[in-house]
C-alpha cells in the first residue's frame, strides 16, 4: 500500500487489486516451493503419468484385455516392447492403462480420507470436551491398527472391485489428516478474529466454515497429497495379493499376474520391473510435492 498526493492535495490510498495481491502471494509461495529442486521434479513426474493416463487409448498399441495379440509369454520385441503374458496379452498396453487406475484410485481415495479427516479434526478441535476425547481415542486406535490387514478383513467381507477399493482405502486413511486438522483448529480458534466473530454473534457453523477451514486448508492440502501416496501404495498391495480391480488394469494387478506366472524365477524382468518402477515414480512424484509443500507451510521449518 502506498500513499500519494493527488493534484487537488487530498490523499489517496492505492491498494493493489485483488488479482495483484494473489499474484504477489503466489510468487512468494512459488519462490519458497522451488527452493529445492524436489517440488519441480514432483510436478514433472505427476504430469508425466497424468499424460500417460489421459492419452492411454492413443498411446497403448493394443487393447490390454485382448488375448492372443501375440504369442503366449513372449519375450520383448519391437511389436511388444514388454513382451506378452500367458494369455498373449500385451504387457506394455497394460502398463499404459495402469496409470489410469492408479491415479483414479489414488486421487479419489485420498479425497474421501480428506473429507472425513477434515470433518473429524474440525469437530474435535472446535468443540473440545467429551466429543474431542471420544473422537481422538477412536483416531488413536485407528492410527495404531496396521492398515493392510484391516483393509484385507474389510475386502474379504465386502468384496473387491474398483468402487469398494476406493471406499475401503478412503475410509481407512483419514487418521493423519484428522490429527493435523485438530491441532491447527485448536490454535486458530484462540486467535482474535475468531473471538471478534463470536462477539458479533456468528454461529459455530459460520466460524468453522468461514474462518477456521480456510486457515487450515493449506495444511490439509499438503497432507492430502501424502494421502494420495498412501492410497496408491495400498491399492498396489491389495491388487498384488489378488483383491484388486477386475476388468481394468492397475500396476498392482500386472504385478499380481507376474507373480502368478512365476516371472521372478523365470527371469522375465520385463513383466515385474516396469510396473514396480511406475508405482514408485508416481508415488515419489506426489511425495516430493507433499514434502516441498510442507517445507513452505510448516512455519517451524521456515524460520531457519
Amino acid at each position: 500500500m502506498s500513499i500519494t498526493g493527488a493534484k487537488d492535495g487530498s490523499i489517496q490510498y492505492l491498494t493493489p487489486s485483488l488479482l495483484t495481491r494473489y499474484k504477489i502471494r503466489f510468487n512468494r509461495f512459488w519462490h519458497l516451493y522451488t527452493d529445492s529442486p524436489f517440488g519441480l521434479i514432483g510436478i514433472f513426474l505427476v504430469l508425466l503419468f497424468v499424460g500417460m493416463g489421459v492419452f492411454a487409448p492413443i498411446l497403448a498399441p493394443y487393447d490390454p484385455n485382448r488375448p492372443m495379440v501375440g504369442d503366449r509369454s513372449d519375450n520383448p520385441s519391437l511389436s511388444h516392447p514388454l513382451g506378452t503374458d500367458r494369455l498373449g496379452r500385451d504387457i506394455f498396453s497394460q502398463m499404459i492403462f495402469g496409470a489410469q487406475v492408479s491415479l483414479l484410485i489414488g486421487l479419489s481415495a485420498a479425497f474421501i480420507s480428506l473429507v472425513i479427516g477434515t470433518f473429524i479434526g474440525l469437530t474435535s478441535g472446535y468443540y473440545g470436551g467429551f466429543i474431542d476425547l471420544l473422537l481422538m481415542r477412536i483416531t488413536d486406535f485407528f492410527i495404531q491398527l496396521p492398515t493392510l490387514p484391516l483393509m484385507l478383513v474389510v475386502v474379504s467381507l465386502f468384496g473387491g472391485g474398483m468402487e469398494n477399493l476406493i471406499l475401503i482405502i478412503g475410509f481407512l486413511g483419514w487418521t493423519g489428516t484428522a490429527r493435523i486438522v485438530r491441532s491447527e483448529t485448536l490454535s486458530i480458534k484462540q486467535r482474535a478474529f475468531v473471538e471478534a466473530s463470536k462477539s458479533v454473534g456468528a454461529g459455530n457453523r459460520h466460524i468453522i466454515i468461514g474462518h477456521i477451514l480456510p486457515n487450515v486448508f493449506p495444511l490439509i492440502f499438503a497432507n492430502a497429497i501424502l494421502g494420495v501416496v498412501n492410497s496408491i501404495i495400498a491399492e498396489a498391495g491389495l491388487s498384488f495379493l489378488g483383491f484388486g480391480v477386475v476388468g481394468s488394469w492397475s500396476w498392482g494387478r500386472v504385478l499380481y499376474e507376474a507373480g502368478r506366472e512365476n516371472a521372478i524365477l523365470l527371469g522375465s524382468w520385463w513383466h515385474f520391473i516396469p510396473p514396480g518402477i511406475s508405482i514408485m515414480l508416481l508415488a515419489l512424484g506426489f511425495s516430493l510435492i507433499s514434502f516441498s509443500l510442507n517445507e513452505v507451510l510448516n512455519p517451524r521449518l521456515r524460520e531457519r
Partner: peptide, 18 residues
C-alpha cells in the same frame, strides 16, 4: 528415503529375490 517410502514393500521383496 522418500523414494523408499514411495516403493511398494512387496516389490522390493520381489527385486531382492530376483
Amino acid at each position: 528415503t522418500l523414494t523408499s517410502y514411495s516403493t511398494p514393500v512387496f516389490w522390493v521383496g520381489m527385486l531382492i529375490i530376483f
